[in-house]
Amino acid sequence: MFILSCTSKNIKEANQVINKIENYRKEKHMLPNDLNSIGVQETEEGPVYYKKVDSLNYIIWIQAESSIGESRIYYSDTQKWENGFREVDKNNTK
């Protein structure tokens, strides 16, 4: 039960970061290059991580609280949380 509560706390924090990114996008018509641009201090310890994929898309991820768990990843293209990173289809690259 403790792991679930920590993960949901991190998702709540990550959702706040997503809101800041989307507000930045609306105001500046672009994505921030890093979290520092939206006033969120980035650290190696997380708990929230950001990666700008291209000019329109980004991912946010949080690490699982235990070493046996997987990351939860938010994909801006679907606006949904997923378990683990997506597989890259190398035959379908542009």
Rank of each mutant, 00 (worst) to 15 (best):
M30H: 10
N57C: 04
G46V: 10
N92A: 15
K26E: 15
T78N: 06
T93V: 14
K90L: 14
I68F: 15
E45K: 14
D34G: 07
G39R: 00
K28N: 15
Y50R: 01
Q63N: 12
G39C: 07
G39N: 03
I38A: 00
S55N: 13
R72W: 13
E42K: 12
K52V: 03
S37H: 01
Y75N: 05
A64V: 04
E42W: 03
S37R: 00
S71M: 06
E82K: 07
Y49Q: 11
Y75K: 03
T43M: 11
F85M: 13
E27M: 07
E45R: 05
T78Y: 05
P47H: 08
K28F: 13
E82S: 09
E70N: 11
N92M: 13
P32D: 06
D77G: 00
Y74Q: 01
V40G: 08
I68P: 05
D89M: 10
E82F: 07
F85S: 14
L56E: 10
I59Q: 10
E27H: 00
K52H: 07
Y49M: 04
I62R: 04
Y50C: 07
A64M: 05
I68S: 07
E45Q: 12
Y74E: 02
E87F: 10
D89G: 03
E65W: 09
Y58E: 02
Q63D: 11
N33M: 13
S55M: 03
G39M: 08
E65G: 04
V53A: 04
R86T: 05
Y75V: 00
S71R: 13
S55Q: 08
G46R: 06
S67M: 11
V40P: 07
N33H: 10
N92D: 15
S55D: 12
E45S: 14
A64D: 14
Y58N: 06
E82D: 06
M30C: 07
Q79I: 00
Y74F: 15
T43A: 09
D54E: 02
I38G: 01
D34C: 11
K28E: 15
Q41H: 10
Q63G: 11
D77H: 00
I62L: 05
P47Q: 06
D34M: 13
T43E: 04
